[in-house]
Structure formats: structure tokens, C-alpha cells
């Protein structure tokens, strides 16, 4: 296992670079995100014997809750902040962001770059709105309303450049088309707040959701009346779920039970692996796109872990 200490900062989100396989970003907040500064860490793997070294860090006035690398410029990454701002950074330029948007009225909890069009990203906020952005435009391109509680995650479809999904404290998953203001599908997917979801990269129309009700649920969007499968095992809220970029059967999940679990839904006993070396809530997970089985996690224990799944 490779480790890095995000000294003084509690990890909220990690993402591997889509360009450079040994590069990783971690969005974090001081004081557990209650009050205080944020910090974006840019890390490189394999540069020291036990792990990772820091290439650069960026400090922000308010806590950072999410980050997403640009899909079109290997130097750029966007962050979501507790003060409602969204900042675009060039990791070759020290100290200040290259763009700073202030439209959301509340904490921004989610940002995600479009996989296919590569020139837009979406943000989800506690102000219950989703906004679509172009990095060169001073204002958002459009705003999507409908959720009736905080939005915790917004992610583009890996198949269709115009589709994205969102999950919320209102216990629904919503599918949106950038060309229409109303959601295409609304699924009341859990009995409690939904904190995370992800798209299956190999099965069109399939998503996984993770909820405060402790379960993960797999959905086929063509049959939204009922989940395809429920994964149980986490003892407390599921904070983040992620489908493997290499398999339509592998899912990783992070939880307030301080564990990260990897599931193989094609097997009778789906729990493939339990990572229990964090000592606080685990909030971030990502799979390396180009090193199969490599998974990064970050947690409130101020640690980033990178582990290798044994196949």
C-alpha cells in the first residue's frame, strides 16, 4: 500500500489523472470541513519508497469537497468549494486559480468533467441546483432545478455526451439531458439520502447508487421500478461508490464505517475485498484508468491510500 498524509486536511475526494497514470489529485478541507481552508493536493505515485510525493498544493479560503480533472488539458483540474465557488486550476501555475465562478448559493459538493464532449463540466450544490459550465465562459451555460434537497453527486454518462445523472438528499436519482430542463427519469432509489452513484462503463443504462441506508443498489434505467440488485455489508452510510473502468462487474464503495469495500457482483458472495486501514470516515475513492486494479482512497484521518486489488 502506498500512503500520503494530507497533514492538517481531511480528505473529501480523490481522482486519478485521465492523462498521466501516476498522477492523483485529492480535494480536502481543514477542520473536517466544519470551518476553515481547503487544499487541493497534486500527488505523484511511485516517487518515494513508501509511496507518493506532492507535486503541488493549492490553498483555498473555504473547504474543498470535490475535484475533477479536465478531459482536454492535462494541466487543468476543477474544484468544488464550501463557499459555493468553483475554481479551475492549472497545475503548472502556482498559488491562484485561472478561473473562479461564484454562482451557486450554497456549498458545491460535486463537479464532473464531460467524458465525451470534453469541453464542459457539471456541478451539484446544496442550493439544490445543477449547473453546466464551459471553462471559457464567465457564466454557467444552464441551471437544472428539480431536486428538493442537497445534491451530493453529479456525473456524466460514459455513453452519451448530453446525459448526466444526479443524486440527492431527496432520495432520488435523476437523469438529465442538457437539451431539456426537466429530468428524463426520476427514480426514488433509496429509503434515505443518496450520497453517491456511478455509471457502469460496460453496460449501457446501468448505474449503482449508495445511500445513508447502508446499501448499494444497482439499477437498469430502462426498468426503474425496481433495483436489479442490492449489496449489503456496510454498517453505516455509503459515502462513495465507483464502477471499475475495467469491468462491468466490479464496484468499490466507501463508507462512514471507515472501510472501503470492493464487490464483484457476478459472484455468489460479492464481497471481493475489505480495506479497513483508515481510522476515520472514508469519503473518496477512484480507480486508476490505466493500471488495472489500482484504487485510491482518502479519508478524514488525513490519509490517502493507494492499494492494488489482487485478481
Amino acid at each position: 500500500m502506498l500512503t500520503f498524509k494530507t497533514e492538517g486536511y481531511n480528505g473529501y475526494s480523490v481522482q486519478f489523472s485521465p492523462f498521466v497514470e501516476h498522477k492523483l489529485a485529492c480535494a480536502s478541507s481543514a477542520n473536517f470541513g466544519l470551518v476553515g481552508n481547503g487544499r487541493l493536493f497534486i500527488l505523484n505515485l511511485g516517487t518515494t519508497p513508501n509511496g507518493m510525493s506532492m507535486e503541488r498544493m493549492f490553498d483555498t479560503q473555504d473547504g474543498l469537497f470535490d475535484c475533477s480533472w479536465s478531459e482536454i488539458n492535462e494541466n487543468q483540474i476543477v474544484t468544488a468549494s464550501g463557499d459555493g465557488s468553483i475554481k479551475l486550476w492549472d497545475i503548472t501555475l502556482a498559488e491562484f486559480p485561472i478561473r473562479n465562478w461564484k454562482e451557486h448559493q450554497r456549498e458545491v459538493f460535486s463537479v464532473h468533467w464531460n467524458y465525451i464532449k470534453k469541453d464542459t463540466f457539471v456541478s451539484g450544490s446544496w442550493d439544490q441546483t445543477i449547473k453546466l459550465w464551459h471553462p471559457d465562459q464567465p457564466q454557467s451555460l444552464s441551471t437544472f432545478t428539480g431536486h428538493t434537497a442537497c445534491i451530493y453527486s453529479t456525473l456524466w454518462s460514459p455513453y452519451n455526451a448530453d446525459l448526466f445523472g444526479s443524486v440527492s438528499g431527496d432520495r432520488t436519482f435523476r437523469l438529465w439531458d442538457t437539451k431539456t430542463p426537466k429530468p428524463v427519469i426520476v427514480i426514488p432509489a433509496h429509503r434515505d439520502e443518496i450520497l453517491s452513484f456511478d455509471w457502469n462503463k460496460y453496460r449501457d443504462q446501468t448505474i449503482v447508487t449508495g445511500s445513508v441506508d447502508t446499501t448499494l443498489r444497482i439499477w437498469d434505467l430502462r426498468f426503474p421500478d425496481r433495483e436489479v440488485k442490492t449489496l449489503q455489508g456496510h454498517q453505516y452510510a455509503v459515502r462513495r461508490v465507483k464502477y471499475s473502468p475495467h469491468s462491468g462487474d466490479i464496484i468499490a464503495s466507501a463508507s462512514y464505517d471507515m472501510t472501503m469495500r470492493v464487490w464483484n457482483v457476478a459472484t455468489m458472495n460479492p464481497l471481493l475485498m475489505l480495506h479497513n486501514l483508515h481510522t476515520e470516515f472514508v469519503l473518496g475513492i477512484d480507480f486508476n484508468l490505466y493500471v488495472e486494479g489500482q484504487i485510491a482512497t482518502c479519508a478524514w484521518d488525513e490519509m490517502v491510500h493507494v492499494i492494488q486489488l489482487v485478481s
Binding site: P18, F19, V20, E71, I72, E74, Y115, K118, P158, K201, Y202, P245, H246, L289, Y290, E292
Partner: peptide, 8 residues
């Protein structure tokens, strides 16, 4: 750098 194709 050119965008890398996704594994999928």
C-alpha cells in the same frame, strides 16, 4: 497531450 482513450 492527446486525450487517452478510456479503457471501456
Amino acid at each position: 497531450m492527446e486525450p487517452k482513450p478510456k479503457p471501456w
